[in-house]
Design a protein around this nucleic acid. Structure first.
Lengths: 217, 217
DNA sequence: CCCGGTTTTCGCCTTATAATCGAAAACGTG
DNA sequence: CACGTTTTCGATTATAAGGCGAAAACCGGG
């Protein structure tokens, strides 16, 4: 999240194929690392990895002709950085809004689309928001963040209650000073769960409540 | 689904490493195919691929030591076969209940666990059930299928209405003859959507209804 | 120091969807 | 033709999400 829009880190390729075009950070897998260790290592050369709040596998992209002149299979990841950090990036990299990408190398635009879809889906049924939010935030700030990432406006009132009913939100007790034009000072909140991804406290088609237990047929 | 339990096709390895142990079907990726084409080709040697109702990427397993004596990265898939087909399988393969696996080669048990979790999650918020169900089925049969796959009992009444409200279920007009002990004949249903996966008609934190449109901040 | 403007917060109400319960329908059997 | 069985359906309850407006808490300016 930069300047209220969802952005992605791109890197200008130096070598052929697709030299000078924008591509996602990445590189070859070494023999002594798994794919997640590899992407963290690749990323470390571009940006401070300690800023990464969340990393998860996305999908494998393996069309035989996705990279001209050689068979390359890509294992794509989704990685998130909180909106309050502004990492230094090298000269040959830049942030681009996901909705306004430049010409990208290979199938990297498709990968970004897939990542965007995954983020949208998980924002609404997990606590993945913690990976984009700062340690403390106001409900308004969180609303702006969710709105930008989801692509539609969400109501602050509802957002607060949905998240707190699920036990994902917790008031810190502090308040944020009001803006230049006045207004009531906003209470500060944080995500519970210590930065862990709370996967599914959710299930449509739930197990029966008054469980008579026993067999499952 | 075989004999009212969720089962997985395993293949007894002929060669080292891990010779004679049970493993998931698979093999090496060729230069002219993507990973999905590859798994379909590998599977064609074991079972009639036309029986496959659904195939989706699961995850990459890439720990450096997951296969002794050589670096192998696995792209795992989830594939589903309707419960009414009983495919012929070769001598060296067998079906095992996912909850009662034999000793498996490599990390294949972890892969099965991951697949089971994915199936459970998607059953409740997509129409993935069509991939396990026969073309026509009674609500009771569908209930048994869901119960076995989810691991807990679901109510037939509720299942029917949840699925039909989402527009996933459709009566065929036919009825099934009652069982040996009598009872009212059951109406037959089918899934709508022609075997396509209806992904997310679902989103907690929805877009506003009476959209005032406009900006998204 | 009062007053309008601004932003946040909170309670109440409406809507949407899922779960539960029980009665009625439709069948075989003795 | 009564009885047990299984399915089906309507009515009711429970739970969660969305909407709205009033009150709270701050600013700045007359």
């Amino acid at each position: 999240m930069r300047r209220e829009s969802l952005q992605v880190l791109l890197w200008r390729r130096a070598q052929e194929p697709h030299a000078h075009r924008w591509s996602l950070p990445g590189g070859r897998l070494r023999d002594d690392e798994d794919v997640e260790a590899s992407i963290r290592r690749q990323l470390a050369e571009k940006v401070d990895v300690r800023k990464l709040a969340h990393v998860e596998q996305l999908a494998v992209f393996s069309a035989p002709d996705r990279v001209p002149g050689g068979r390359i299979v890509a294992s794509a990841f989704l990685g998130l950085i909180p909106c309050d950090v502004d990492p230094e990036v090298p000269e040959d990299t830049a942030w681009y809004p996901v909705d306004d990408l430049p010409d990208t190398a290979f199938d990297h635009e498709a990968i970004v689309r897939r990542a965007q879809g995954r983020l949208r889906a998980k924002l609404s049924y997990t606590n993945l928001g913690f990976a984009l939010a700062p340690p403390e935030f106001t409900i308004s700030a969180l609303r702006g963040l969710y709105s930008a990432a989801l692509g539609y406006r969400v109501a602050a009132t509802n957002l607060q209650r949905v998240l707190s009913r699920r036990g994902l939100l917790e008031p810190t007790g502090h308040t944020s000073p009001p803006g230049p034009s006045g207004g009531r000072p906003a209470a500060l909140f944080r995500f519970t769960g210590h930065g862990m991804l709370v996967t599914d406290p959710f299930a449509v088609l739930r197990p029966p409540s008054r469980g008579s237990g026993g067999d499952v047929r």
